[in-house]
Design a binder for these strands. Structure first.
Length: 412
DNA sequence: TAGGCCATCTGGTCCT
DNA sequence: AGGACCAGATGGCCTA
């Protein structure tokens, strides 16, 4: 089975590996990312072929293996016998019945290219090469899967001080977060239809996150149990109290919706929208802030408004409603047009950078990984790493508190 | 030190 | 043949 020529095991010319095998890359990655991932083995007795840095080391490794092949110990013999009797492979799936109408595939006549005129030694090298390439592909595949999970983590409303969610926690939390957002939309629909909202949940991220980490799949009933309807704020008439609860950090009044004498503030997800009665409108998201200001209200400062609410408390819905005679329907056609125009203007003003192409294995580099929040910035200086994925695709949600807003002025 | 989590290796299966 | 996907095995790291 094994070649008796030692040199056959020592021919580690990299040319036997295809250009996309990523061998050098893997070796480099093992140093770059050694603190974040299991380093690729260099000194173990497994194949360890291309992953070892020098030919001398490779020779030593294979010399050891070669000696073992030539003179297997009793332990090795017993092990090899036992291993034949253990089936650790993926269980076979039942084969689908063949479709007789499906056209048969054509195969070339004669021996295939690989098995033709190849010595056992050459075949072994070919197999080993295939295995290395398969390992490399599998590694990259898992890396991309982890990239996707990291992206998911960044859009989930976790807090900076939290430890990184595990994979399963991330998936559970994402599921429950989507559920919670759906509940928000349902409440919003009830507002628009003139009905009282279904619930005014006393929501917060930490509860939802902790629930998710516990491994429970959230349901409507569980949702109501976990987030009970809070007591109405003082000054609100229960009969006409209308409010909906988003899932972002609430305003000082504990709600995600705030009706004031100046206008309306709505906070849903990562976006806060301020519609000012005088035309000074603002959209704030995790990616920045855009102000859409009517000429008559240039100089209006939303931050001052928020500060005023924090200090003196926001007026209740009824106060705002009565004072301004606001219509009950906030998301009517007119407001929709206002929002649409504002977003369109903002979209034209912002240049969207192309995100990194992950599909290029050759350019793959673990140093680009955003495993920790610190990867989003340059250490403690909070400078953006221009070559980081995070810089362009804005995944670093949890650190955007530090980001200065970009301001866009437009007339609506 | 046990257990959880993770990265990696590996062989099997399915599909093109 | 070869790539994608999957699941089991393994070893390292970390924490209670």
């Amino acid at each position: 089975m094994f070649s008796t020529s030692f040199e056959d095991y020592c021919d580690f010319n990299d040319s036997i590996c295809s250009n996309d095998s990523g061998i050098d890359r893997s070796y480099t990655d093992s140093f770059i990312n050694s603190t974040n991932s299991t380093p690729i083995k260099h000194e173990t007795s497994d194949l360890g072929i291309s992953l070892t840095p020098t030919k001398d080391v490779r020779r030593k490794l294979f010399n050891d293996d070669y000696e073992l092949f030539q003179n297997p110990t009793d332990d090795v013999k017993v092990f090899e016998e036992n291993i034949q009797n253990i089936n650790t492979s993926t269980p076979k799936k039942e084969k689908k019945p063949k479709d007789p109408n499906k056209p048969k595939r054509k195969y070339a006549n004669g021996k295939n290219r690989i098995s033709r005129c190849k010595s056992p030694t050459q075949l072994m090298k070919i197999k080993r090469n295939r295995r290395m390439k398969a390992n490399d592909r599998e590694r990259n595949r898992m890396h991309m899967l982890n990239e996707a999970l990291d992206r998911l983590r960044c859009v989930l409303p976790t807090f900076p001080e939290d430890t990184k969610l595990t994979k399963i926690e991330t998936l559970r939390f994402a599921h429950n977060y989507i559920f919670a957002l759906s509940e928000t939309l349902e409440s919003l629909d009830n507002i628009n239809s003139g009905q009282a909202p279904v619930e005014d949940y006393n929501l917060n991220y930490e509860k939802l996150q902790n629930y998710s980490i516990g491994g429970e799949k959230i349901t409507k009933d569980a949702f109501r149990d976990i987030f009970p309807v809070p007591n109405k704020p003082e000054g609100c008439n229960d009969g006409s109290y209308r409010n909906f609860q988003g899932f972002s950090r609430p305003f000082p009044n504990g709600s995600n919706f705030m009706q004031t004498s100046e206008g309306v503030l709505i906070n849903v997800g990562n976006v806060t929208v301020s519609v000012n009665n005088k035309g000074g409108n603002c959209i704030t998201s995790t990616t920045g802030t855009g102000f859409f200001t009517h000429p008559s209200s240039f100089g209006e400062d939303m931050n001052q408004q928020v500060y005023q609410y924090e200090r003196y408390g926001a007026p209740s819905y009824n106060e705002g409603y009565e004072a301004n005679n606001m219509p009950g329907e906030y998301f009517n056609q007119k407001n929709y047009e206002i929002f649409k125009n504002a977003f369109d203007t903002a979209a034209k003003s912002r240049k969207i950078e192309k995100t990194e192409d992950y599909s290029n294995y050759g350019r793959y580099n673990n140093s680009m990984y955003g495993y920790t929040d610190t990867n989003c910035f340059n250490g403690n200086t909070n400078e953006y790493l221009q070559n980081s994925y995070y810089y362009n695709d804005q995944r670093c949600y949890r650190n955007f508190y530090n980001r200065a807003p970009s301001v866009v002025n437009a007339q609506i």
